[in-house]
Design a protein around this nucleic acid. Structure first.
Length: 758
DNA sequence: GGGGGTAAGTTG
DNA sequence: AACTTACCCCCT
């Protein structure tokens, strides 16, 4: 019974079995290893050890190399990884790839050494090939088929080692001597002297700039052997540090400090919430425990780290850092003592010693749903990690949503007073001056006069939601999706925001021949920005969406101006003079096709207000439904009580319909090139689930997706609604494996389910 | 008969 | 995910 290792590769696969390395170190769970993979080598993480049957063991291959002693993933992280995979209905390797710890994609050198006996075999499989024996060679030197054959015969040793990172640089190769004397050689001598001062430069052109000489002088210097190119090791990058801030954390009232165990803190401003959290963090550190603080977006992680760094040593881990920086930080975290780490999902598996608490900042943010890979919902993944590590979970949020109410034990919720909104409703039913209501126009004029700043949220990028014929109502459709094409006036193109299809706007209506074609339906960022540029002459108008991210440095430095953008605005750092927030079409948010639309709309408003930092900007909301209960609650004299009442009604509704947090959902999305295959696959899955005992209440659909055709594929959904996670896992395990002609995508905890079904 | 595209199967 | 094999269409 040989010992075998389960190795996780960052690929959508279960753990694969390898034998321990032939010589040298053993490989323990959590360590990084190099393993043979499809004729090459790759880096994986040891997930576990077990015994395998001897017969089976013979066909397995050996781990080629074990990276240095430290555990790259902690036992708790490994355990949580397995739980996340089971809960999400995906292989654990996909979870590893999704959370993307650093150090799994180094440049590897794959070395092979042919045994002496290999000579005869080589002659047979690769005639004419002459290769040195008993010496390490690069694997690429051996023809692939021959290598595979030699491997089966046991005639080759293999190794995988990290290729040292090098950079090509121009370095001095000699001292200035008589060859560089005289006026004609003066530039070359200057260049060489400058190069000796600098030690090395990136390129000849850089040296020419540095020394103030021509490119050709440098070229001659190199040609005459005074300088040359060399491969230098890349220095370790400095650690990413949170930027300094002038803000500070106030002293909190003791009743606002979240509890030592699982708990929550809602309300107030971000600064006030962090201030109330600080004593808890101090206590954790003093007790020798690390704390992981997770933010939904890089900007929030960075801003939070800056504020906390005024009190504690803080490490920051986000996608802003390079892979090499993250790898270095990872190593240092594993070696260091208890500490605070602030980061995005990329920090979830970080090897913090003695993890005692996970803090979820902005806990209900929809940005916590990862849209690629394993489609994890980060708060759930964080709970699984905390469970495995024996750590507490603390939730911070603008306001309590239904999920938070369910996650936090009764009595463990602390609340700061909600910021008072100065909210003005601009009734779009009054008509007039679309897409900017006269009330919003008037307040914008005041912002200009006072030299302040404003942000305007538009429902989409581009100029308009559609392009078509005002006479007969024709709208240009996407050929690949069941959607209208969006009109981008600046580029004079029609674009599909789903599949990327692009075409020129037609001159005539293909239906009625009309020639008055133009923008139709909802106004996008381009439309609003162009209208403001006209009506606010001389006032800077910026745009911030996926198409165009204007440099907002002047605004951040306190210059006046207005930014028009999509929800991308929510990832901006605070604007120092923000005095107006405009929502140009609030109904879009209320009408979103999800049962969480109302909570999302509340959150969006409060987050926009937080862009003002400690200032409380005026909020102007354009809507056709000014009497909506959500808007009434936000403008109530006691918004805390009103929102709490709203929360109660939301919870009651969710319970009545059996929606989260009173159930766990999974969306099974079937796609195929033809409609029949997609529907048949969805039906096959539904039938299999019924056969396996799924209740009528647990199975919704198959139903065609809200957009029935997307990127040239038809989409049908089956929604699973299980009482708890265990039941959902059991149902997912009953799904058939293959669907001819169709693909299945499993999305556990989907965030775009549609309106409440009954 | 084979290039180019898509779909399905495999990876230890 | 990355790679290989199987298959189909169309063209020489």
């Amino acid at each position: 019974m040989p010992l075998a290792l389960d190795v996780l590769l960052p690929l959508p696969l279960p753990a694969l079995t390898y034998l321990p390395p032939l010589q040298g170190a053993e490989a323990r769970p959590g360590q990084r290893v190099v393993v043979p993979w499809q004729g090459g080598v790759r880096v994986g993480v040891v997930a576990g050890q077990r015994m395998v049957d001897a017969g089976r063991g013979l066909e397995l291959r050996h781990v080629l190399h074990v990276f240095d002693g430290t555990e790259w993933l902690t036992p708790a992280a490994l355990q949580a990884l397995g739980r996340m995979a089971r809960a999400a209905g995906v292989p654990p390797g996909l979870v590893l790839a999704t959370l993307n710890p650093p150090g799994l994609h180094p440049e590897l050198a794959h070395g092979v050494r042919l045994r002496a006996e290999a000579a005869g075999v080589l002659e047979e499989v690769a005639p004419g090939e002459s290769l040195p024996l008993e010496r390490w060679l690069d694997a690429a030197a051996v023809p692939g088929k021959a290598l595979e054959f030699l491997r089966q015969q046991g005639l080759v040793d293999e190794r995988g080692v990290e290729r040292p990172r090098v950079r090509r640089a121009l370095v001095p190769l000699g001292e200035p001597d008589e060859g560089l004397e005289g006026a004609r050689r003066e530039p070359q001598r200057r260049a060489l002297e400058r190069l000796l001062e600098l030690g090395s430069v990136e390129s000849g052109a850089e040296l020419a700039r540095e020394a103030g000489v021509s490119d050709s002088s440098v070229r001659s210097l190199v040609a005459r052997g005074y300088a040359g190119y060399a491969e230098l090791p890349v220095e370790e990058p400095p650690l990413p540090a949170p930027p300094l801030t002038e803000e500070s954390l106030p002293e909190p009232a003791p009743e606002h400090v979240p509890p030592e165990g699982d708990g929550a803190l809602v309300g107030g401003s971000r600064r006030e919430r962090l201030a109330a959290l600080a004593p808890r963090l101090a206590a954790d550190l003093a007790a020798g425990r690390s704390v992981l603080l997770l933010a939904p977006e890089q900007a929030q992680a960075t801003a939070t780290a800056s504020l906390l760094a005024t009190r504690f040593p803080v490490a920051l881990l986000t996608g802003d850092a390079s892979e090499a920086q993250r790898a270095r930080l990872w190593r240092e975290l594993a070696r260091g003592g208890p500490q605070l780490l602030v980061g995005t999902y990329l920090a979830l598996l970080a090897p913090l010693p003695a993890l005692g608490r996970v803090v979820l900042l902005d806990a209900g943010s929809p940005a916590y749903k990862l849209q690629a890979g394993a489609r994890l919902l980060l708060p759930k993944a964080a709970r699984q990690l905390a469970g495995a590590a024996g750590a507490a979970v603390t939730y911070l949020d603008l306001a309590a949503g239904p999920e938070l109410a369910a996650w936090v034990p009764p009595g463990a919720r602390r609340a700061l007073p909600l910021p008072r909104l100065r909210l003005h409703l601009a009734d779009l039913n009054d008509g007039g001056n679309w897409p900017v209501h006269p009330d919003l126009q008037r307040t914008l004029a005041q912002v200009r006069e006072r030299g302040r700043q404003a942000v305007l949220l538009a429902p989409r990028r581009g100029f308009s939601g559609a392009f078509g014929c005002p006479d007969c109502g024709w709208q240009a459709p996407c050929p690949n999706c069941d959607l209208t094409l969006r009109y981008h006036r600046e580029r004079s193109r029609l674009l599909c925001h789903q599949c990327g299809h692009e075409e020129r706007p037609p001159d005539r209506c293909p239906d009625c021949g009309g020639t008055e074609l133009g923008p139709l339906r909802g106004a996008g960022t381009q439309w609003i920005a162009s209208q403001l540029a006209r009506s606010l002459q001389g006032f800077p108008v910026y745009r911030y969406d996926k198409d165009q991210r204007d440099d907002l440095a002047p605004l951040l430095a306190g210059e006046p101006g207005v930014v028009v953008g999509t929800l991308a605005l929510l990832s901006l750092p605070p604007l120092p003079l923000l005095s107006l927030v405009g929502v140009t079409h609030f109904d879009t948010h209320l009408a979103a096709a999800d049962f969480r639309a109302e909570e999302e709309a509340t959150r969006t408003l409060l987050r926009l207000v937080e862009l003002g930092g400690e200032r409380r900007p005026l909020v102007v909301v354009q809507t056709h439904a000014p009497e909506h209960e959500l808007l009434a609650a936000l403008t109530a004299p006691e918004p805390e009580a009103a929102l709490e009442g709203l929360l109660g009604r939301q919870l009651e509704r969710r319970q009545r319909f059996g929606y989260p947090p009173f159930s766990t959902l999974a969306k099974l999305q079937f796609t195929a090139r033809d409609r029949g295959s997609a529907l048949a696959a969805a039906q096959r899955a539904a039938d299999a689930l019924v056969t396996a005992g799924a209740l009528e209440s647990e199975l919704l659909g198959p139903a065609s997706a809200p957009v029935e055709r997307l990127r040239g594929r038809f989409v049908f959904n089956v929604l699973l609604r299980a009482a708890d996670e265990a039941r959902l896992e059991a149902l997912l395990a009953e799904l058939p494996r293959g669907y001819p002609g169709a693909k299945l995508l499993i999305d556990v905890d989907p965030q775009d389910v549609g309106a409440l079904l009954d």
